[in-house]
């Protein structure tokens, strides 16, 4: 029972970390039709910048607040200087561009910080464990659950209940009509791309104490995030949320109870869901 509850918590933690990554990935895909292979790089960049901020300021919290800013700026620059010029071309060109960028970011990170694995220490105020349901749980992990759920709620409110969110959904539904009735779609794309990147960068900092900080962590998190949005449905925030929890929990339980088969379990789940619902749990047929 103890093991079960603590695995469930770990699954939630991993799932919510995936959500921070997958939500941006999914909205960007919905708006631009682009699978952003550099999205993991934003996560990695956030983690490394967070590492440096901690070493200068000694504060995890400063890292959490500051690291997403340069990541968002880099993403906005990429969208404006590079991606924007490819929108009228074949989608494959954009995917290849983001693929190339992911190598550039890996090189940049290795050039700046080296190839070692660093660990970001969790904030001192959350170092202890709490006794809870008959077991001990690290405070930091519980904090991630609260933080992840809070971000999910805020994102949901932003996308579903505000005018800006309605603009994003309008762009996802029909970019052309959105332009035709006067929405500044280019600005919407830049903002969404940069915000998604900031969220990924923030996820990098939050995950630092758990996953570690190293070049290569980008691929490590990007692949499950892709599985999440394929399962949940591209362009759907709800899908990203449900998919993240599903994959987070399935992966954690798989590793705990059937380590040899854990990777297989996730892909098998993906195949079953895709056979039953080709557009994912909450996705819609492309228009």
């Amino acid at each position: 029972m103890d093991l079960f509850v603590s695995q469930l918590l770990n699954g939630l933690v991993y799932g919510l970390l995936l959500f921070l990554l997958a939500s941006g990935l999914s909205l960007i895909f919905g708006l631009m039709g682009v699978v952003n292979l550099a999205h993991g790089s934003f996560f990695m960049l956030g983690a490394f910048i967070g590492l440096s901020v901690v070493s200068y300021t000694g504060s995890f919290w400063w890292a959490l607040v500051l690291a997403p800013i340069p990541v968002a700026i880099a993403a906005a620059a990429i969208e404006i200087l590079l991606l924007r010029h490819l929108y009228k071309r074949d989608k494959v060109d954009m995917v290849l561009l983001t693929f190339g960028l992911s190598f550039v970011f890996t090189d940049l990170v290795e050039w700046g910080w080296g190839k070692d694995t660093f660990s970001l220490s969790e904030p001192a105020s959350l170092e202890e464990s709490l006794e809870f349901l008959g077991g001990y749980f690290p405070q930091y992990r519980l904090a991630i659950v609260v933080f992840g759920l809070a971000v999910a709620l805020l994102l949901w409110l932003l996308i579903e209940k505000t005018r800006i969110g309605a603009m994003v959904r309008a762009g996802i539904d029909d970019t052309r009509t959105a332009m035709g009735i006067g929405l500044n779609v280019p600005l919407l794309l830049t903002t969404t791309f940069a915000s998604g990147a900031a969220l990924a960068g923030m996820a990098g900092v939050v995950a630092g104490p758990i996953l570690g900080v190293y070049s290569g962590v980008d691929v490590e998190v990007l692949i499950p995030a892709f599985i999440v949005i394929v399962i949940g449905g591209m362009g759907s925030l709800k899908g990203a949320f449900v998919g993240s929890l599903l994959i987070g929990i399935a992966d954690t339980f798989g590793k705990a109870y059937m380590p040899e088969a854990s990777m297989f379990l996730i892909y098998a789940a993906m195949i079953v869901i895709l056979l039953a619902r080709p557009h994912g749990l909450f996705g819609q047929a492309a228009s």
Binding site: R163, A170, I181, L183
Partner: peptide
């Protein structure tokens, strides 16, 4: 007013009206 109407399916009727 485009051909095929261009209604945003994921927006409510009121959101369709007010979004732009």
């Amino acid at each position: 007013v485009p051909q095929e109407r261009g209604i945003f399916g994921n927006l409510t009727v009121e959101e369709n009206l007010t979004v732009a």
